[in-house]
Write a protein that binds this DNA or RNA. Sequence first.
DNA 1: TCAAGATTGAGAGGCATTCTCATTCTTCTT
DNA 2: AAGAAGAATGAGAATGCCTCTCAATCTTGA
Lengths: 139, 139
Amino acid sequence: MSSPTQYSESELRAEGVRITRQRLAILHVLREANDHPRAEDILARARLQDQSVSQATVYRTLAVLEKAGTVLRNEFDGTGARFELADRTHHDHLIDLDTGAVIEFHSARIERLQAEIAAELGYDIEWHRLELYGRKTPD
Amino acid sequence: MSSPTQYSESELRAEGVRITRQRLAILHVLREANDHPRAEDILARARLQDQSVSQATVYRTLAVLEKAGTVLRNEFDGTGARFELADRTHHDHLIDLDTGAVIEFHSARIERLQAEIAAELGYDIEWHRLELYGRKTPD
DNA sequence: TCAAGATTGAGAGGCATTCTCATTCTTCTT
DNA sequence: AAGAAGAATGAGAATGCCTCTCAATCTTGA
């Protein structure tokens, strides 16, 4: 059984993930990112470090890292997945409808309620997705 | 200002939505559906009633009905949108990871917490998406 | 009944993502 | 350090879901 989240090269290698030049570039991009970049953005940024990275490799690597628990995939709007490193604690997202900004938040109470509701329905939650879409409250 | 949800032919007509043979077939499919069908399913079912319905018209009609507030679009997995009539009260979804079944639920407490969290972050929620993915609890 | 303009079917087009395959690279074993 | 096994790669083709284009047809208000 592996720990749920690993993101150092050695941890990944121990999981059987080969560390290539391209994968290092992609990991670097994810570590530096403050936003939730799309595959397209990750490709562009990775190429600044390693010219040779291809689109196919970005998608393949993101899939590998997602399976390893290193990366989280989000589907905020309908326009393609957005990625982030799974290196912090679990959180949900609030998307600013005016600016597209993504704000992270966490609520233990909501998580607890979710588990309660699922239990009432006879289910155990494996994972969940909670996204709030809103606009800044006028002063 | 229009009421948030309308789904009778006359209500739609009053909103400026023309009622065509194809749109009636699609509305009929949505009214009969207990599942959350994909565009593909809606096309197949609509054709049972009206052979002439095309894929383009299904997508166009679903977009029109979504804008009118008659239809809700869901993006559960990454494999294409799933639709439902917006004729009942708001609810969220629990997706059975083993069977793909979609269970609807509603929690006023969770809704309230969401609004509170958004308010703390200085936001008003426009809409949200909450999906729980889980498996039946073993007996 | 009619004209205006909305809707339609068929197929082309678009976009994000995945696949194919020959070549190159990482890693394990010596 | 060298070699072998097989995993990862780039390029571009292919896929899947969805949207657009356009000429023909329909719905609707007058």
